[in-house]
Design a protein around this nucleic acid. Structure first.
Lengths: 256, 256
DNA sequence: TCTGCAAGGTGATCTGGATCAACGGGACCC
DNA sequence: GGGTCCCGTTGATCCAGATCACCTTGCAGA
C-alpha cells in the first residue's frame, strides 16, 4: 500500500482551473475539446473563444513527424489537443538534448525569437490547433487578460526547466530516472486519475537524451530500480511505481 | 582583432526597450533608477509608475546575505537595481545547483508556489525595490498590460534555462565554460558597452555549481582555455575573451 | 517464410571529470 | 608580526557513467 503523496495534495491545477471554466453553448467549435480547461482557452468566454478558435486551423501529425524544426521561422503557434511530442536541440556532432515532452494541453512554438530554437517531433499521433503567429499576437494584444495566462504558462515551464537543471547538474543516474518517472506520474495525474502507473511513449534513447545519460545507462538503471523493487516494468511501455515514497526520497537525493 | 558577433546584431533588448521608455517629470521617485528601461517598470507611465513604486520599499543586502531562503514563504517580490546574486537549490546532502546569477534589472521571487524553491544570496552589495506579494499581484490584476511584461520576462528566463539544460545535459567541461563566459559577456553588453572583458563576481565554486562541475575542474578548464590562448585571466576577477569566434564555436560544440 | 532493422538489454572496457591531497597567496584579525 | 581562513591552482588516484560489442525480440515488408 503506497504512502500518500507529499506534494500538491489539495488544489491541483486541474481543480483550480475547472472552477473558472465557463460553459459553452451547444455546438460551439471548442465544445468537445478535452484540454480546454487546462489551457489559456479555458479563461475565454464563449464569444471570444469562438473568435480565438476561428484564427486557428486543426491539424494532425504522425509519430516521428515534426511540427517544426530548429532554425525554421517561427510562424505558427500550436495548442496540443491530444498525443505527445519531444522538444529537442541538436549539437552539430549529433549530441541531442530533449528539453521537454509536451503533451495535450501544452502550447508550443511560443518563442520570442524569429526562428525556433528547438525541433518538435511527435512521439504518438498528435492533434493540435495551429495559430498564425501574427494573428495570435494580435489577439493577445486585444485581450490583455491573455498576457497573464501566458505568463502563468511560461512560469510553470520555467519552474520545470529549473527543476531539470538541478537534475542534470547534480543528480546521479538513479536519482534522475526516479525524478523523471515521478514527474511523468504527477503530470498524468493532473489530467486523469490514473494509478501508480506511468506510460512511457518515448524510447530509452529519448529518456537518455532528456536526462543527460546514454540509452545503456537508462536501461541498466531501469533494471536496477526493478531489482530493488521500486518499480515494475509492465507490458505496453508502462511502469508501475511500487514504492512511491522511496522513489520520492531517491529523487530528491535522500537515498543512496 | 575579434570577429563580429553572430547573434543579436541589431535590435538588442536594450535598444528595443528604450524606444518605449516614457520620460518622467522632475523629482519622480524612479527618475534616477538605472534599470528602469530594462524592467517592466519601463512600460508604465509616470503616474502609474509612481503608484507602483509607492507599493515598494528600498533595501540593501551585503555579500553573502540572503534575500530569501529555499522553503521561506514567498511574501516579497524583488526588483534588483544594482549588484548581483546567485539563485540556488541545495540537496539534503549538500550538493548545490545554481540556477541563475540574477543582476540589476531582474525580478526575483516571482514564484507561483507559496514558498520559494530557491535561495537568493548576494554576491556583491545589492540594492533592490521590494514589493509585498499581495500588493504586487493586485497591481498586476489592475494593470493587464503588466501581464504581458511578466510573460516576456518569464519567456526570456525560460529560454535561458533551456539553453542551460543543453549545457548541463550534453556539453563537455570546456564547452560549458566557454558558453558561460559568452553568456556573461552578452548579458553585460546589453547593459553597458564593455569590451571583450567579462567580470566574474562569483567564485570558482559558484561557477562549478552553475555548470554541473567541481571547482577543481573549473580551475583546470580556465587554465586549459588560457593555455590555448582563447582567454586571458586579468587581475580583479576579470577575464578577457581573446578569440570570441573560437569560443563561440567551442561553446556550441563545433570544436574539440 | 525469410529478411532487415529498430528497440531493449547486458557484459567488458575505457575515460572525463570527481575526489582526495597539498600548496601558495591574499584578507582579516588579534 | 603571526595566525587563521578562504580561495585558486595543481598533482595523483578513483569511479560513475560512456563507449563498444553483442544478443534478443518484435514487427513491417517482400
Amino acid at each position: 500500500m503506497p504512502a500518500p503523496s507529499e506534494h500538491r495534495q489539495a488544489g491541483s491545477p486541474g481543480t483550480e482551473k475547472s472552477l473558472r471554466l465557463t460553459t459553452l453553448p451547444e455546438g460551439h467549435p471548442c465544445g468537445r475539446c478535452a484540454v480546454r480547461a487546462a489551457t489559456i482557452c479555458g479563461t475565454l468566454k464563449a464569444k471570444e473563444l469562438g473568435h480565438f478558435k476561428s484564427l486557428s486551423s486543426s491539424g494532425y501529425a504522425e509519430p516521428s513527424q515534426c511540427l517544426f524544426h530548429e532554425g525554421d521561422p517561427a510562424q505558427l503557434v500550436y495548442s496540443i489537443t491530444s498525443g505527445s511530442l519531444k522538444l529537442y536541440r541538436l549539437l552539430p556532432d549529433g549530441r541531442r538534448q530533449i528539453a521537454a515532452f509536451p503533451q495535450a494541453g501544452d502550447f508550443l512554438g511560443l518563442t520570442l525569437e524569429k526562428v525556433h530554437a528547438y525541433t518538435a517531433e511527435a512521439l504518438e499521433p498528435v492533434e493540435y490547433c495551429r495559430f498564425p503567429r501574427q494573428r495570435f499576437d494580435a489577439f493577445v494584444d486585444e485581450h490583455p487578460e491573455m498576457g497573464r495566462e501566458l505568463y502563468l504558462m511560461a512560469a510553470h515551464e520555467l519552474a520545470a526547466a529549473r527543476e531539470q537543471m538541478v537534475l542534470l547538474g547534480r543528480k546521479t543516474a538513479r536519482e534522475r530516472l526516479a525524478s523523471f518517472l515521478l514527474t511523468l506520474f504527477d503530470r498524468a495525474r493532473c489530467r486523469n486519475a490514473d494509478w501508480e502507473i506511468v506510460r512511457l511513449p518515448m524510447t530509452r534513447t529519448d529518456i537518455a537524451d532528456h536526462l543527460g545519460l546514454t540509452k545503456e545507462t537508462v536501461s541498466r538503471t531501469f533494471t536496477s530500480l526493478r531489482r530493488t523493487e521500486m518499480i515494475a516494468l509492465l507490458p505496453g511501455e508502462r511502469v508501475e511505481l511500487l514504492q512511491r515514497r522511496r522513489l520520492e526520497q531517491l529523487a530528491c537525493g535522500e537515498l543512496g
